[in-house]
Design a protein around this nucleic acid. Structure first.
Lengths: 213, 213
DNA sequence: ACCTGAACACCGTTCAAGT
DNA sequence: ACCTGAACACCGTTCAAGT
């Protein structure tokens, strides 16, 4: 009933992201977001089609933080590395949003810009279309999968308390049944996600630049 | 009130998977599953801790379908390829479950067995622990990420009607803003997920067997 | 011990009404 | 035209009671 307090879609978007960052996905609902914005739940529908649309807005807020580096400075490998790393860091900066990022299909300008710049960088390596598609698939799969693994994989990453707890659990499994896994859980205790990401990505790029068949 | 109809956790698990396979994730709720089993919702809590536990059961039903091949038949690369492909195929056979698989951390025997056998295969290539961890991370990230991309990536896979629609949408973007993406959307029309998965995985394995630094 | 209906505290969204 | 409260059809889960 007429508080003029009409807010922009942009403030809604960032309020939603802030809620998820702070309290996890369960902290975001039409009602909780409306309360945050000091309005009624139904008012949100003036800015957003439905809950799914709100989720996409949150995903896009994260992807919008990706700073795609200016093109073609060094080798194509370095450029691809810069883009992939930028995406991974932005995603990783919002761990609570990762389930949304993994499961929502975005077609926003931010997400298309990332895809386009990655393709442009890869195209500099001289490939047929088919090879370019393969390279694009491999890299995007790896980046998203690496973020996924940090959230849900069997071998914990990083040195947080939670990661160390997880490692301890896996290390405590019967070593005769899981000889490698238990050893690797110990190794994962020294995990440095940034370095591991770089090493994995380098291996992938090496493989993608090898002889074509 | 004593229909004796006590059912096993196993039938509950497969009924839940069947509901998701048939009707998507939204078709599975405590109430819908109970109805399927011709009982009341609260009866489920005799077999399952909570909804999260039910989700894990569904994830595990899929991972339980992975047939890990017998070890050490050919080269380590072929063995790793066999395992990765088996996982990917099982996941892909249940597309509606993918969001759950990506976001739930399982520690079930099925999931641990997969991880252990993948590590065992990789260990045959002769690596330090640190290199083994890197290789494991790269491959699991890739497999999960590839499944994720088929569900939510910008370039559609396969020749289904839906995939073709999606490709058409991306192809219809302004080509001066998205020169590579629009071309690749056309290329993706010929997409053969199985072949692309193999090509990407081969590149990754090539990279992982290259010179260490 | 195992089972289960009623009730509670949430959801997203429709609808009809406000200005 | 924009806003919004009440109400509806769902959720997962607590609680108390059945056998």
């Amino acid at each position: 009933m007429g508080r003029p307090a009409t807010f922009s879609r942009d403030t809604l978007q960032h309020a939603a992201l802030a809620l998820v960052d702070r309290g996890g996905l369960s902290a975001l609902s039409m009602r909780s977001l409306a309360a945050e914005l000091e309005t009624g739940a139904m008012t949100l529908y003036n800015h957003v089609a439905d809950r799914e649309d709100l989720d996409l807005l949150v995903v896009d807020a994260v992807l919008g933080e990706v700073r795609v580096p200016p093109a073609a400075r060094y080798s194509w490998k370095r450029e691809v590395t810069a883009i992939a790393t930028a995406v991974w860091r932005a995603v990783r900066a919002h761990p609570n949003v990762i389930p949304l990022i993994l499961t929502r299909r975005t077609r926003s300008p931010a997400s298309l810009a990332i895809a386009e710049s990655l393709l442009a960088a890869l195209a500099r390596s001289g490939r047929t279309r088919r090879e370019l598609l393969i390279a694009f698939r491999a890299i995007t799969a790896f980046v998203m999968g690496f973020a996924q693994a940090e959230m849900a994989g069997p071998l914990s990453m990083g040195q947080g308390e939670q990661a160390i707890d997880m490692a301890a659990q896996v290390r405590a499994l019967p070593p005769d049944r899981y000889p490698h896994l238990t050893v690797m859980a110990a190794e994962a205790t020294k995990s440095q996600p940034e370095l591991e990401f770089r090493s994995c990505l380098r291996a992938l790029l090496d493989g993608l630049s090898g002889t074509k068949r």
